[in-house]
Nucleic acid binder design. Structure first.
Lengths: 225, 225
DNA sequence: TGCTGTGAAACCGTTCACAGCT
DNA sequence: AGCTGTGAACGGTTTCACAGCA
């Protein structure tokens, strides 16, 4: 599923692993570990050691031969690399269960990320707050809020049929990157980077394998051979 | 990120595209379209035409040369292929916002999929129902409910630190496939197929590209060359 | 002519194996 | 001796280009 925007030399798989790496390094730092090898890191994250080294190699030299990586140092450099060293504001559109879950997730409220607002078109929700205190504003205030907070990233969790319209408004408001949690396919938009995260797809991938892969197509009787 | 279990000849990318295809075909059928070419289908889904043909080729011959694919026929065959032609029960563990969102999602309650129960350890939630009526049971009833409903698939949406324990209990209860929405890394379990869907990863992938890729590592002054 | 099905080519990411530094 | 950084091999997926059929 391409989500290509500009010169995308770095694959999504790589950025995902960097994220994972960052998380692992944080844990190690809390455990008081000062130095770590790609070997050990890999085992903890379920990745290959060579792959970690390769991923890092793309961005420079981070370790010391014969020794390993400095935990605090590598952590800081990856954080920097992922663009998390400067604070970033997020907005979540759609204050249904999914939107609320996203807004309150500690994962989006750590490092440099902060969810600054939720939007919904339901009058009864507007003016309220999520459990952790994110204010719910009217969808009509999107442009104003985005401008005021400098938010660059939006998480889209509205009903599928409203998704394209809302995405267009977010783009117009100056949002530069969007994660689409909707099943709707969004048209390509000029200055907006889009990642589609379709939760259904993961489940149907499982049903495929559960049902024995392509078993459904094979005849019920044993094949000739 | 491998999630390899048994002989996994068919890639996750392929099953995702089949899911997408199924969705597209449903839409076409509702529009009253009887026949469609890989060309048109591809354009609607944002895929390549050759790729659609290649994906299908893996499972047999589905179209008519010079004509295209019969919408109703192809839809039915893909549904079959994905293992959605027979009903499947799902359970969702964790009745927080994310769990409730998953349980009420129309995506998991169409075709052959049905969410039959939510589980939570919070006494105050147990006995209640989600907005669409899925009953919330005590986490202690997992084994019993799974046995009673024949559920094979579980969606895991509990706090990260509880994830490994709950996953083990689900495996013991007879669940065969699990989608882990938690940030926790689950240990490999014998008869349990796991897919990890870490929502954080998608956002941090965006911050990487927003910050100009590896711009953070390049010196502020222009490189020598 | 139009469109599928498919071998071949191109591409990309991962894994291997080792040179090089500490 | 230990571990990083990396060229080379590998495997898998995507794209191309066309043969074959309606």
């Amino acid at each position: 599923m391409p989500g290509r925007a500009r010169r995308e030399a770095v694959s999504e798989a790589t950025t995902h692993r960097l994220s994972l790496l960052l998380r692992g390094l944080k844990a190690l730092e809390e455990e008081g570990v000062g130095t770590v090898s790609s070997q050990v890191l890999a085992a903890r994250l379920g990745l290959g050691a060579a792959q970690i080294r390769k991923d890092l190699a793309r961005f420079g030299e981070f370790g010391v031969r014969g020794v390993g990586y400095g935990v605090a140092d590598l952590k800081e450099r990856i954080r920097r690399l992922l663009g998390l060293s400067t604070p970033r504001a997020l907005v979540v559109v759609g204050a249904g269960n999914l939107g609320l879950a996203l807004a309150d997730s500690r994962n989006f409220n750590s490092d440099g990320l902060e969810v600054v607002a939720l939007f919904d078109s339901d009058r009864r929700k507007v003016g309220g707050r999520s459990r952790t205190g994110v204010p719910i504003r009217s969808a009509s205030e999107i442009a104003e809020t985005v401008a005021g907070t400098g938010a660059e990233i939006a998480l889209l969790a509205v009903p599928a049929d409203e998704a394209p319209g809302v995405a267009a408004r977010l783009a117009a408001a100056g949002i530069r990157a969007l994660v689409n949690f909707t099943a709707a396919a969004l048209p390509p938009m000029p200055r907006l980077m889009v990642r589609n995260v379709d939760l259904t797809l993961f489940v149907e991938g499982l049903t495929f394998h559960l049902s024995g892969g392509d078993a459904a197509l094979r005849p019920a009787v044993a094949p000739v051979r």
